Amino acid sequence: MAAPIDKLFLEICNKFGIVLTLKQKQAITGLFNFKDVFVGTKTGSGKSMTYECAPILFDNGTTLIIAPLTSIMKEQVDRLKGLGYKAIHIGTEEDDIHGIRNGHYHFVFGSPELLVGNEMWRDVIKSSSFQNNHRLTVVDEAHTVVQWGHGSAQESPFREWFAHIGELRSLSLNVPVLALTATASPTNRKKIMKSLCFKKDSIVILDNPDRQNIKITVITIPNNEDDEKLFHWLIKGTHGEYRAREHVP
């Protein structure tokens, strides 16, 4: 007999028309077991799938996603609606506060300024109606927790509420947290997990940062080197591409 998680994997693959990778399975299994999960894998590795399958994983309910940019939210809302899910991003004139509070949506997207910094939305999140349906909290582009939320002695934070996302944990103590990023050093990863109040038994999923198709070379050149001579290969190549596009004989 197949294990329950294997049946869920099959249902996810059928729903999305994909084959799950090992790392996706590891992340989904962690969430299925109510563990906090940190996924630090490269762009295009399918990180979003680990929360897009939440309605299957948790038998519907609401997934709360904190994202840094409205464009990201709109793109994901459109994608999820196309898959037949109910999704919404808050911060528009069409905010369905009643529907969000009462669990009418599978996915609710919002910025930390609203979800954490706005008293009205905090009240919605901590309401018993929302809590009864809240299954997962996701922090997309989680590197912004440190890069945008933390300042320095010389500069204030770019968007300080990113450093306060962890406060949502106090509102939903038993809901797992999923952090997704493609750019977090080991030091920043620890800072992010601490800031988001990850539990001690959390799961960390990483891939090798090496990129076979990227090469970085450093050369030293004299200050008086002629720019045209130095970059002749780039200028020649760019000029050739331009002429080709413009059909210049």
Rank of each mutant, 00 (worst) to 15 (best):
L22A: 13
E52C: 10
D201M: 11
I97R: 06
N133E: 11
H106N: 11
E113K: 08
G84D: 05
T70L: 15
I28P: 01
D226F: 04
I72R: 02
Q154M: 14
H164M: 02
Y51N: 01
V138L: 01
V218F: 15
Y85E: 06
H104G: 02
C197V: 15
T50S: 05
E119S: 14
D36I: 04
D96P: 05
A27L: 05
G103Y: 06
V37S: 01
E155H: 12
L168Y: 08
D6K: 08
V177M: 11
P209G: 06
Y51W: 15
P112I: 07
L22E: 13
A184C: 07
T217K: 14
P209R: 08
A3M: 11
S156E: 15
I90C: 06
V138W: 00
V218L: 15
Q154G: 02
E94Y: 15
A244C: 09
N188M: 15
N33T: 04
F16A: 09
L168G: 00
F109P: 00
F38A: 07
P222Q: 12
A153Q: 09
I219Y: 08
I219G: 11
N208I: 15
A54Y: 03
S111N: 08
L83V: 05
H104E: 15
T63P: 06
F9K: 03
D123R: 13
F130D: 01
H143V: 05
A153Y: 13
N14I: 09
V146I: 14
K25Q: 13
E225M: 10
K35Q: 13
T43H: 04
S195H: 08
G82F: 12
N133W: 05
L80H: 02
I56A: 09
N208E: 14
D6E: 15
P112Q: 08
T50F: 03
E113C: 10
T238S: 14
C13H: 07
E160P: 00
D96K: 07
V77S: 05
I219K: 14
I97C: 04
L83K: 14
F32C: 03
Q147E: 15
P68A: 13
I219Q: 09
H150T: 10
E94D: 11
K229G: 15
Q212E: 15
K15G: 02
E167P: 00
G99C: 12
V204N: 07
